[in-house]
């Protein structure tokens, strides 16, 4: 709790925390957008969401070690993850799309463990980061620092999200994806190849998660086990924002980033993950209370 006193003594720190939180939140929102896409179109909660973020991060680190600047690596990472997502769809996901939700939850949970442990075996459990120094700005007499790379990362997150949004809005395939989300059976009758739609959706999700992972790797640190936290963050954001609400996802993502950063500062970083998971439980409980008050008759 000492940290609260520090905050009171130097309120300018609030600005710093808020800023860092918002910049991280932009990346959370990107991954959450992907989860909302898969959830909305395929009715699958992808528990392996965070693992694509993690893998994207590791690819970026490897590229950086090979001398490619992480920002330039982003498209390549996205492409690789797209292929991985497509492969996983073809191997596993297509078998579970129409099955009950427990099967899809558990299967993606299995994939999550698989990828996480593979990464652990291949890359080791150490904490890694991709060097991409771009200089730093100082504001308020140096009380507030902004690493340019974080700004750039947030900008890339916004651009990637925007590109995906445009794709869904404008392209033929994007329209097919949205039609499938509305009503898969009707879409099938209209001649839409829903299998292809699902494959694309799943692969696209992996790709944007990969991009998010690249941004995490260049602004923060990565290790094989951080996937689950990203899955949970994405889930929370989507639950709060609601499916198919892009602005809500952005707002919730930024809010979560800021809240987490404050909590991490006040409680200590060792409790930051605990905060995320506890917040999840609290949010779900609150949602349930609200719904319970006006329970709708479903089905």
């Amino acid at each position: 709790m000492d940290n609260i006193t520090i905050l009171l003594d130097a309120p300018i720190l609030l600005v710093q925390l808020l800023l860092d939180g918002l910049l991280a939140g932009a990346i959370f929102a990107l991954a959450a957008y992907g989860m909302a896409l898969v959830w909305g179109v395929m009715n699958i909660i992808n528990v392996s969401q965070g693992e694509y973020v993690m893998l994207g991060g590791f690819v970026t680190v490897l590229l950086a070690e090979a001398g490619i600047h992480p920002m330039l690596g982003v498209p390549l990472v996205a492409l690789l993850l797209y292929l991985l997502g497509w492969l996983i769809y073809r191997l596993v996901i297509f078998r579970i799309v129409d099955r009950d939700l427990f099967i899809s939850l558990l299967a993606t949970f299995g994939i999550s463990i698989l990828l996480q442990q593979l990464a652990n075996q291949i890359f080791g459990a150490d904490v890694r980061t991709a060097e991409g120094e771009l200089g730093t700005s100082f504001l308020f007499n140096g009380m507030v620092t902004i690493a340019h790379i974080k700004l750039a990362a947030a900008l890339i997150a916004v651009l990637t999200g925007g590109a995906l949004w445009l794709f869904l809005k404008k392209s033929r395939l994007g329209q097919a994806i949205r039609a499938t989300a509305q009503n898969a059976r009707a879409a099938r009758i209209m001649g839409i190849d829903t299998d292809r739609v699902y494959a694309t959706t799943f692969a696209l999700n992996a790709a944007i998660c990969g991009a998010a992972g690249a941004l995490v790797a260049m602004t923060w640190i990565i290790h094989p086990y951080f996937g689950l936290v990203y899955t949970i963050r994405s889930f929370m954001i989507v639950v709060v924002a609601g499916l198919g609400n892009l602005l809500g996802v952005i707002a919730a993502g930024l809010g979560l980033g800021a809240a987490e950063n404050f909590a991490g500062f006040v409680l200590g970083v060792e409790y930051q993950a605990a905060f995320v998971f506890t917040l999840l439980v609290v949010i779900l409980l609150a949602r349930n209370l609200l719904l319970g008050r006006k329970r709708q008759y479903l089905k």
Binding site: I232, A274, T278, L280, V281, L284
Partner: peptide, 19 residues
Amino acid sequence: YFAICTLGLGVAAGEIAGG
């Protein structure tokens, strides 16, 4: 919601105990 919430509970407990 139940599945993910319980997942969160388990991990949260581990993280809290870990600190």
